[in-house]
């Protein structure tokens, strides 16, 4: 018999109730994305399903625009890791969004080569046109303006990445045209890099 007072180790004990930010709606992949994930997981050794976490999160983001707490739990379940493992990854990489973003995310590079070619004026003009500050989404929910670090297209500075497509040699003058085109023609006006290989299909 110990001389310590008796202690309760039952349900009354305060446990940390860690909840993920923005739990969102319950999430499941579409059948197509689920099949894609299975294909991706097969690229890694059977006991290394975790390797597929970045592709799995991209699938979530392409499906619903951003990554919610429920989606993190869902991905964790599929890959056999904890939701904390997934949140750890989501919070580290800059290309994952945990809040809703506009239909078009305009990421303006502002590292040295783009900066000496006027990246800050491109950002200024974008924000002026859309009435937002960097990091914000415009009132219509169409455009989000982000300032990002080097995109690796320094010879065609300044560069804006619109979703996954590059738009090179931007200037305050071309930015207005870019926004008009995106409004009018949507995704078909995305141009990619000047060397883009025109892949069919």
């Amino acid at each position: 018999m110990s001389f310590h007072p008796p202690m309760a180790y039952d349900a009354t004990f305060q446990r940390s109730k860690r909840t993920l930010a923005e739990p969102g709606e319950p999430f499941t992949y579409t059948a197509e994305n689920r099949a894609k994930l299975d294909e991706i997981v097969a690229r890694y050794p059977a006991e290394q399903r975790r390797s597929a976490v970045l592709p799995a999160l991209y699938l979530v983001q392409y499906q619903q625009g951003y990554i919610t707490g429920h989606a993190m739990e869902y991905v964790a379940g599929l890959l056999g890791i904890t939701p904390a493992d997934v949140e750890d990854v989501v919070s580290y990489y800059t290309m994952f969004y945990t809040k809703p973003v506009g239909k078009f995310v305009l990421s303006v590079c502002r590292t040295l080569s783009c900066a000496i070619n006027g990246a800050e004026r491109v950002v200024h003009e974008l924000c002026h046109q859309l009435h937002v500050k960097p990091g914000e989404t415009d009132a219509t929910g169409t455009f989000t303006v982000l300032e990002v670090e080097c995109l690796g297209a320094c010879d065609k500075a300044p560069v804006i990445m619109v979703n996954d497509a590059w738009h090179e040699k931007q200037s305050p003058d071309t930015v207005k045209q870019l926004l008009d085109d995106l409004r009018a023609k949507g995704e078909s006006s995305l141009t990619d890099c000047h060397m883009a290989a025109k892949v069919k299909g």
Binding site: R43, Q48, R50, S51, A52, V53, L54, P55, L57, Y58, L79, I81, D85, D88, V89, Y92, Y93, T94, M95, F96, V148, E149, C150
Partner: peptide, 29 residues
């Protein structure tokens, strides 16, 4: 021999070889 492409998600540090391996294993770079 198989060749697969693995997409990163925006981290300069992933260019360091061991950080790249961590990232490929599904962790922070």
């Amino acid at each position: 021999c198989e060749v697969y492409v693995h997409r990163g998600a925006g981290a300069y540090e992933a260019g360091e070889e061991t950080a790249l391996l961590e990232s490929l294993e599904g962790k922070r770079a």
